[in-house]
């Protein structure tokens, strides 16, 4: 009797699964649509408007993206340079700042910490416009004189894409909290062996900070890979330094011509291929690092 009741499918379970499966499909639909559309020929794509079925799958769109003639690889390179920079520098500053604010004791330390913390409530837009002006008025750059007049400063040049946002108070905070959980004995043992502060940070703490660092790398990479607003502000005029999100809109328009089709046709399959190309690395990253994504998001809640 008991076994029978266990095996019986409860109606509310069926309802539960139906709801979850259907809503999950709805969530995934735009991405699946894009993936299927990206490997369809234009004829196949038009045949079934509700969902493209690639009867004759083609990689033509991806070949165009990856061919030397297109700028996509340059933009990917630019994005990767920015990502590497914005992982290394804010990460290093975060570790050093977190160390100073937790492991070193000196007068004024807690005031510095409060001063830095007070900035976390300020939305980025409150300083974006003046920062843009600072970039444009950078003295002796881009045709500017010593007073920052006459030229365009570092606008549309690499420094504008790399100079802001290097001190990330959230990361300093995150590392400060993590240092506080590590017993000081490890550092003291290393110091007895004659290690200095940098040596301690590198050999003693860095291995222990790995989980937090992984979270930083993942979230910083996703943020920079998708960053759009600031590159739009400061690099629109120079396609050579565009990042992927910025170059995307330009390429999306020219897809049809690249296949020798009349320019008036908007080739949506090409738009989908570009979008899939831009999103795929992040999905792979998520699949491989799923545990760290969950931990990272939860860390934001617990510590932030």
């Amino acid at each position: 009797m008991q076994k029978k009741s266990e095996n019986r499918v409860k109606p509310e379970r069926v309802l539960l699964y139906t709801v979850i499966i259907l809503t999950s499909i709805v969530m995934a639909f735009p991405l699946l649509f894009g993936l299927a559309g990206s490997i369809s020929t234009i004829e196949d794509y038009v045949r079934t408007p509700w969902f493209p079925i690639p009867y004759t799958p083609t990689a033509q769109n991806y070949e165009i993206i990856l061919s030397g003639g297109s700028d996509v690889l340059l933009w990917v390179r630019n994005t990767l340079i920015r990502a590497a920079w914005y992982i290394t520098i804010p990460g290093a500053i975060g570790i050093l700042g977190g160390y100073a604010l937790s492991r070193l004791r000196f007068r004024g330390r807690d005031n510095v910490f409060l001063f830095l913390l007070s900035s976390m409530m300020m939305p980025g837009i409150v300083y974006m416009v003046p920062t843009f002006v600072m970039m444009a008025r950078m003295p002796l750059a881009g045709g500017n004189d010593i007073f920052g007049q006459g030229g365009s400063g570092v606008i549309n040049q690499w420094p504008a894409l790399l100079i802001t946002g290097l001190v990330n108070v959230y990361y300093i905070f995150m590392f400060r909290q993590t240092f506080a959980t590590i017993p000081i004995d490890f550092e003291e043992a290393a110091r007895v062996d004659g290690a200095g502060t940098l040596r301690c940070l590198w050999s003693v703490y860095l291995p222990m900070l790995k989980p937090v660092l992984t979270v930083l790398v993942i979230f910083q990479f996703v943020a920079i890979w998708n960053d759009y607003t600031w590159p739009l502000f400061v690099s629109t005029g120079n396609p050579k330094i565009w990042t992927l999100s910025l170059g995307f809109q330009y390429l999306a328009l020219g897809g049809a011509q690249r296949k020798g089709l009349p320019g008036s046709i908007t080739d949506y399959t090409f738009v989908f291929a570009l979008a899939t190309f831009a999103i795929l690395p992040l999905i792979v990253l998520y699949m491989v690092m799923q545990r760290f994504f969950v931990e990272g998001v939860q860390g934001f809640a617990i510590k932030g």
């Binding site: 735009p30 991405l31 894009g34 996703v222 998708n226 999100s245 979008a275 999103i279 998520y286």
Partner: peptide, 20 residues
């Protein structure tokens, strides 16, 4: 799998997916 389906849209670029 379901959690991924609900979380992955968050990873996408707002600019690119808006154009899609």
């Amino acid at each position: 799998l379901f959690r991924s389906a609900w979380y992955i849209p968050t990873l996408t670029s707002a600019a690119i997916m808006a154009q899609v």
